[in-house]
C-alpha cells in the first residue's frame, strides 16, 4: 500500500505498535431504523458541520450492537464523512463508548474529589469483591461491568455510582452488596434514581 513507486513498504522489518486495538468486528451497517434516525439527526447541523453529529452517530451504533467495533467506527466515519482516525479519537476519549462487550448494567464509579473523600475507592473495592472482577471487567454472568469515571456532577450526593443512564446517589461502601443483589433480583426497578427526579 505504498504510494511511492520506488519506495517499498516492508512493515515486517519494524516493531509493531503494542497498542490494544478495538475489536475488528464483523460487517456493520445501521439498521434501517437507525439509519433513518441518523439521517434525521444530521439535518440539525449545517452541511459543513456534519461532524457535529458524531456523538449521536456513535451512540446509535453502540445501542445497535452493545459496543463499538472497528467496523462500526468505519461505518460511522463513512456516514459522517470524516476519517476513521477522527472517529477513534472521539470513541477513545469518552468513557461512555465501549470498545469491548459490556454487561447489562455498567457501574460507573465516580472517583473525583467529593466522591473520593467520601470513600469512592472503597465503593470500587466493595463492587470488585462482590462481583469478583477488576475495574474494566465484566462479571461471569455478563450482568455487571465495573468502570471508574471522573466527576458525574452529583458531588452533593457523593459517593455516586452511575448505573447505565441512572445515578445511584450516596451509595456507601457497605450498601454495595445489598444494592447489587437488588439489581440482580429486580433489575431496573432496584435503582433509586436521582433525587432531583424524585423530588419533582
Amino acid at each position: 500500500m505504498s504510494f511511492h513507486p520506488k519506495m517499498e513498504y516492508a512493515p515486517a522489518r519494524f516493531h509493531k505498535s503494542a497498542r490494544t486495538l478495538p475489536d475488528p468486528g464483523g460487517d456493520f451497517t445501521y439498521t434501517a431504523e437507525n439509519q433513518a434516525k441518523f439521517d434525521a439527526n444530521v439535518q440539525r447541523y449545517p452541511p459543513d458541520q456534519r461532524k457535529s453529529a458524531i456523538l449521536y452517530a456513535l451512540y446509535l451504533a453502540q445501542r445497535q450492537q452493545g459496543f463499538l467495533t472497528r467496523a462500526a467506527m468505519a461505518h460511522v466515519a463513512g456516514q459522517i464523512r470524516c476519517t476513521t482516525a477522527d472517529v477513534e479519537d472521539v470513541v477513545s476519549y469518552y468513557t461512555m463508548f465501549y470498545t469491548k462487550p459490556v454487561g447489562t448494567y455498567v457501574l460507573n464509579v465516580c472517583r473525583t474529589l467529593s466522591c473520593a473523600l467520601l470513600g469512592a475507592e472503597r465503593v470500587t473495592e466493595a463492587i470488585s469483591e462482590k462481583l469478583g472482577i477488576k475495574v474494566g471487567e465484566t462479571d461471569a454472568s455478563g450482568m455487571f461491568t465495573l468502570i471508574e469515571v471522573e466527576c458525574l456532577g452529583a458531588c452533593d450526593r457523593a459517593p455516586v455510582v452511575m448505573v447505565n443512564d441512572d445515578w445511584e446517589e450516596r451509595l456507601a461502601p457497605e450498601q454495595v452488596g445489598e444494592f447489587i443483589d437488588h439489581v440482580r433480583a429486580k433489575g431496573r426497578a432496584a435503582f433509586t434514581g436521582c433525587h432531583l427526579h424524585k423530588e419533582k
Binding site: F3, A85, E88, S92
Partner: peptide
C-alpha cells in the same frame, strides 16, 4: 487533507495513533 492521525485515549494515556495502527500513507 486526510486526517489519518488522531489522539487516542485521554489524559495520561493519550497517544498519537492511526486507525488500526496502519501508519501514515501520504505523499
Amino acid at each position: 487533507g486526510d486526517a489519518q492521525i488522531g489522539i487516542v485515549d485521554r489524559g495520561a494515556g493519550s497517544e498519537i495513533a492511526t486507525f488500526e495502527e496502519r501508519g501514515v500513507h501520504s505523499l
